[in-house]
Computed example of a mutant assay.
Amino acid sequence: MQIELIKCHGSNNDFLLIDEMESRYQFDDHKRRQLALALCDRKSSLGADGILYILDSADTDAKMRIFNSDGSEASMCGNGLRCAGRYVCEKLGKEEAVIETMKANLQVKKHDALYPDIPTYQVEISPVSFKLEDLPLNMDRETLIQEKVHQLDEDLLFTALAVPNPHLTAIVQKDQLESNLQKKISEKVNRPNNLFPDGVNVSFIRLLEKGSIYVRTFERGVGFTNACGTAMSASTLVTCLIKENELEKPINVYNNGGMVLCAVHEKQGSYTIDLIGNATFVYSARLEIDFTEKGIVSGILEKEPYSEGLQYEKLQEHARAYLANF
């Protein structure tokens, strides 16, 4: 069978987007996992952090499901939601849309360009929970906010939260960021362990100056990524909790793939986060796919590049030049 897709990225957290809204593919979850395992493999295929499947929804403009490169399904993906939101808005001829995700229906809308000539979208990141049972994290307490976890490290202060993906964050110094500490902790909590039975996304946060932070994330099911939208959102919230940044004000969040803006809103003790950043289309492709007992045999029939990538490289250069000062 032939399938069409779009390679896209948010902060160089890259995805393959497949439109199932017309239901002509009729994939089941086994085939969706097979596709993720085969097509996201950077050594033998197109390569990506995951696949965004866009489906019809009974209650919203569309539904997004995301399968990571290891075949697991994520409950949400902020960078992916921007790309999915752009696709749905352009498909339906709208400036904003509501997208159904596993845990919530979330608003997406076109935003003023983050950097000249870069398609930019704002997405809602919610719900937010600090209850350890929502991650889950097995500890004899209800929350973990800026506290030590001796099983992981003797010095770092950790905060655990679900947005709704599970996240474990720590604010670090430059030498800690440059060490192998994050890799060591991340691999421990994403192998069989007694703390995080389902694994967890691990982010190291570096405070740069008021209103600007750097975030690097080891993403569950993927590994180190150029950026993780929900992780950048969670990390921004953590810096607001400790008064390093302010609620309601946009925060510059730098990452290895570029930068985004995040703004945290609080109402009656509950939080929502706006994630604002690029939704860049890299190329469209048409593939021949053959599902076999051993997996998938695929071949690229056609590949048509978009011109947006060159402009995004300018944003990356801007971000790198800024980070070089720290």
Score class of each variant (00 low, 15 high):
Cys262Asp: 09
Cys228Pro: 04
Met139Gln: 02
Pro136Asn: 10
Glu244Val: 12
Ser307Thr: 15
Gly93Arg: 07
Asn68Val: 05
Ile242Met: 13
Thr169Tyr: 03
Asn256Glu: 12
Leu144Ile: 08
Ile251Tyr: 04
Phe291Leu: 11
Gln268Asn: 14
Asn252Gln: 11
Met1Ile: 04
Glu22Cys: 05
Gln26Phe: 07
Thr239Gly: 12
Ile242His: 07
Ala36Glu: 00
Asn105Gly: 03
Asp61Ser: 02
Val123Tyr: 03
Pro305Arg: 08
Met259Pro: 13
Asn68Phe: 02
Ser186Met: 01
Val238Phe: 09
Lys31Met: 09
Tyr115Cys: 04
Gln26Asn: 11
Tyr53Met: 01
Lys188Asp: 06
Gly295Ala: 03
Leu135Gln: 03
Asp153Ser: 05
Phe204Asn: 12
Tyr254Trp: 06
Asp117Tyr: 14
Asp41Ala: 06
Lys303Val: 14
Leu55Lys: 04
Asp175Ala: 02
Leu37Pro: 04
Lys110Gln: 05
Glu20Met: 03
Glu154His: 10
Ser186Thr: 04
Asp155Leu: 05
Gln2Phe: 09
Arg65Lys: 05
Ile213Pro: 04
Gly85Tyr: 00
Pro119Val: 08
Glu4Cys: 08
Ala97Tyr: 08
Ile213Met: 05
Asp175Leu: 02
Asp61Leu: 00
Glu313Ile: 15
Arg141Gly: 07
Val253Leu: 05
Val238Gly: 01
Gly258Asn: 05
Tyr214His: 06
Ile276His: 07
Arg220Ile: 09
Phe224Ile: 15
Gln182His: 07
Asp198Phe: 15
Val108Thr: 09
Pro192Glu: 13
Arg33Gln: 06
Ala36Val: 00
Lys7Asn: 06
Asn12Pro: 14
Leu156Gly: 08
Glu133Lys: 12
Lys110Ala: 03
Val282Pro: 07
Gln26Lys: 10
Leu247Asp: 11
Ala319Trp: 02
Arg220Phe: 06
Asn68Met: 05
Ala263Tyr: 08
Leu144Phe: 10
Ser298Trp: 02
Leu5His: 06
Gly295Glu: 04
Leu5Lys: 01
Cys77Asp: 06
Ser44Thr: 10
Ser235Leu: 13
Leu237Met: 06
Ala113Gly: 03
